[in-house]
Amino acid sequence: MDDRPVAPATSTLDVGMEAITRRLADSSVLASRNAMTEIDWKAPLDPTKHGCSPEWSTLYGTDYWDELTEEQRVTLTRHEFASTMTIGIWFEMALQKMVIRDQRSSPVQSEEFRFAMTEVADECRHSLMFALAAQKMVGTSYRPGPRVATLGRFFMNTAGGELAYGGILVAEEVLDVMQRGSLGDPRVLPMIQTINEIHVLEESRHMRFAREQVREAMAGAGRLRRETSAVLIALGAELIICSLVRPQAFSDAGLDRRRAVAAMLGNDHHHRMVRSGSVHLMQFLDEVGLLTPRAARIYARNHML
């Protein structure tokens, strides 16, 4: 069950971006946390604790998973979540670049500028937090494949409006769902529990900001723009979904890489988890006219719809 708080019905179209971003910026002052001081980074890790809830492993529910010992499963989930976090860093750096570029011409006294810079600062701290956690948990990091890296660089250097913020929203929503799925799970490392709590709390503000930017950008948009943007955002989501758990993570966990990748791609359980976790995102995209039939087919083939 998704227990995320329901976003207020009002949007920028009702009260304006300044009012929304003022509330978000004020909230960031009152409700922000710092993993650098909250987590004891020198404390040893419990060897029995997972990197994420086992149900969120890409192999959970497969024959391969059933063959693994509990120790192997723990190692696997740690490498999978390390991959998700370090690939997440790469996406967060793209996010920062797009937000900064979007705010270059904004009045620096505006509430929108204030919150946008707060978001960039949050993302910098999240990236450091993810990097330290991955290093401590598995001693390595992961990078996207060459194709995704090239397309990602092009996207972050050119995307604006609903494309930029739609892409940001998709990346944040996907990671948010996975982290929410492990909240409160005593099988998961306490360090990861704290990281998930911090990221979920602060990303909820970032996602609200992205939604409002998309709403504002799509107000009055014509059919061609809607169709084009919908497909491009869906293709961006495909790149994100396919990149989070790198094949190398399976090798590093001591598994047969080819067999693990095949099991992941055919894992109906994981597909259902992704689909149920994408409900709120799909509802929002439909609301703003960005869930067109062509885009829906892309989401469906990636098990998000």
Rank of each mutant, 00 (worst) to 15 (best):
L128Q: 15
M129Q: 09
F130Y: 11
A131C: 01
A131K: 10
A134Y: 02
Q135Y: 13
K136Q: 10
K136I: 02
K136S: 02
M137A: 15
M137R: 11
V138D: 11
V138M: 12
G139A: 06
T140I: 12
T140K: 13
S141L: 08
Y142D: 11
Y142T: 03
R143V: 03
G145Y: 05
L151V: 12
F154I: 15
M156C: 07
T158W: 11
T158F: 09
T158Q: 13
G160A: 14
G160R: 15
G161I: 03
E162F: 03
E162M: 13
L163S: 07
A164G: 12
A164L: 07
G166R: 01
G166C: 10
G167R: 00
I168W: 01
I168A: 04
V170L: 08
A171H: 01
E172C: 00
E172A: 07
E173K: 07
E173Y: 00
V174T: 09
D176V: 05
D176L: 08
Q179T: 04
L183H: 04
L183N: 09
L183W: 02
G184I: 14
G184P: 13
G184H: 15
D185L: 05
D185T: 00
D185R: 09
D185N: 00
P186G: 10
R187K: 12
V188S: 10
L189T: 09
L189V: 13
L189R: 11
P190F: 05
P190L: 01
M191Y: 06
Q193F: 04
I195C: 07
E197W: 11
E197G: 05
I198Q: 02
I198V: 13
I198M: 06
H199M: 05
V200Y: 02
L201D: 15
L201V: 12
L201M: 14
L201C: 14
L201P: 03
E202H: 06
E203Y: 03
S204F: 03
R205M: 06
R205Y: 01
H206E: 03
M207A: 03
M207N: 09
F209W: 12
F209E: 10
Q213N: 15
Q213W: 15
V214T: 13
E216V: 13
E216A: 15
A217T: 11
G220H: 02
A221I: 06
A221T: 04
E227Q: 13
A230Y: 02
V231H: 13
V231W: 06
V231N: 11
L232I: 10
L232V: 13
L232E: 03
A234S: 08
A234C: 07
A234P: 05
A237Q: 00
A237I: 07
E238M: 12
E238N: 05
E238H: 12
S243E: 00
S243F: 02
